Amino acid sequence: MTTAAFYPVGTPGQPWGETERTQWRALQSRQRRYDEDVLPRIEALSERFEKVAYGRLDYAGERYTLYALRNRDWNAALPAALVTGGVHGYETSGVTGALGFLEERAAEYAGKVNLLVAPCVSPWGYERINRWNHDAIDPNRNFRADGPAHESTTLIELVAPLRGQFLLHIDLHETTDSDASEFSPALAARDGKVYEPELVPDGFYLVDDRENPQPAFQQAIIAAVERVTHIAPPDDKGEIIGSPVVARGVIEYPLAEYGLCAGVTGARYTTTTEVYPDSPRTSPQQCNEAQIAAVCAALDYALAHA
C-alpha cells in the first residue's frame, strides 16, 4: 500500500487545466522506442499476417503509425477474435504478450478463427512508460466514438466494419506498483480529488463484463494461467482493486459504461487480463507467458462453445 499526500503538478483540490497538463507533460521522458522495440516485430510478422495501418498520432511533432495484424485469408464464414495490447502503454506484457502470441501460437488457430491483433494501442504511453496519452487522458476510460483519446477512437473505427463477427475480445493489461505510487495519485491530482491509498493485488486476475458475465469462460482462463503464474487473492474485504471478487481471480466492471477497450466489439466473450509484473514470485518472461496462455485459453473456450 502506498500513500501520497502531494503530487508535483497542480493545486490540491483543483482540476488541471492546460497549464498543468503542460507541466505534467514536461515531466515525461522517452524511456524506450516504439520504432525499435515494437515495429520490427510487427514488420517480421507481416510476412505471415496482413499489416494494417489503422491510424496515426501526431503529438507535438512526434508521429506514430498505429498497426494491427490480421489473417491474410480472412474468411467471413469463421468467427473473429480481437486481441489488444498496450492500451496502457506502460503495461509491457500487454504489448509483448500480444506479439508473442502471434509469433508462437497463432498458427495453431489457422482455419478456425479470424485473428485481428492490435499489439500497441498507445505508443506514446509505451515510450514514456505511462498510463495516459500525451494529453493526460486515459485511453481505457474513453472507448467511445466521440471520445477525446485518438488511440481509442481509431481502434473503434478499425473494428466497426467487423462488428457482429467477433466471438471474442481479450484485452491484455498489467496492474503494477506504479498504479499506487504514480498513476492513481496523478489521476486524483488531475481531477482535483483526494487520493485514496490502494492495495496492489499480488497476482493475476481478470475483469469480466458485468452486463454480460461469462463465469465459465473466465475460469477457463484462470485455470490455464495458474499453470504459469499465481492468481491474485482477494483482500480482507473480499475485493481486488476495490471491486468484489465474484469468482477466484475475477472481478466485474460494466465495460461499455466505463468506456473500456474490452467493450468495443460487442463480442459474446470478453475479458481484460491483469498481470502483476512487480511480484517477487514472477518474472517478465512468466508475465509474457501468462498473457499468451490467457489468449490461447480464451480462444479454446470460445471456439468450443461457439
Rank of each mutant, 00 (worst) to 15 (best):
Y7L: 00
P8M: 01
P15R: 01
P15H: 07
Q23S: 15
W24F: 11
S29L: 15
Q31M: 13
R33D: 14
R33L: 13
E36N: 10
D37Q: 11
L39Q: 10
P40M: 07
P40N: 04
A44V: 06
S46H: 04
E47A: 14
R48G: 09
E50G: 11
Y54Q: 05
Y59H: 14
Y67M: 08
Y67F: 14
L69G: 03
N71Q: 02
A77M: 10
L78K: 08
V83R: 05
T84Q: 09
G85S: 06
G89V: 10
Y90M: 15
T92N: 12
T96S: 12
G100N: 10
E103C: 00
A107H: 11
K112Q: 13
A118P: 08
P119F: 08
C120A: 06
C120Q: 02
S122C: 14
G125Y: 02
E127K: 06
R131H: 13
N133A: 04
A136M: 10
I137K: 13
N140D: 05
F143M: 07
A145D: 09
P148A: 01
A149E: 09
T153W: 03
T154A: 11
T154Q: 11
L155H: 02
E157S: 15
V159R: 00
V159W: 14
A160T: 15
P161I: 00
R163Q: 10
G164I: 05
Q165P: 00
F166R: 05
L168Y: 00
I170E: 09
H173Y: 04
T176I: 12
A180E: 01
S181A: 06
F183L: 02
F183Q: 10
A188L: 01
K193N: 13
E196F: 05
P197C: 12
L199R: 14
V200Y: 06
P201T: 01
D202P: 04
G203T: 05
Y205S: 00
L206W: 06
R210V: 07
R210F: 09
E211D: 15
Q214H: 08
Q214E: 13
P215K: 01
F217G: 10
I221R: 03
I221Y: 08
I222K: 02
A224K: 03
E226I: 04
R227T: 12
V228S: 10
H230S: 07
P233Y: 10
P234V: 05
D235C: 11
D236T: 11
K237R: 15
K237Y: 13
G238S: 12
G238C: 11
I241T: 14
I241A: 13
G242Y: 12
G242Q: 07
S243T: 11
V250F: 08
V250W: 08
Y253E: 14
E257C: 02
L260V: 14
C261K: 08
V264Y: 11
T265K: 15
A267L: 01
Y269F: 09
P280Y: 03
T282E: 00
S283K: 00
Q285A: 15
A290G: 04
C296M: 07
C296R: 15
Y301Q: 03
A302L: 04
L303E: 09
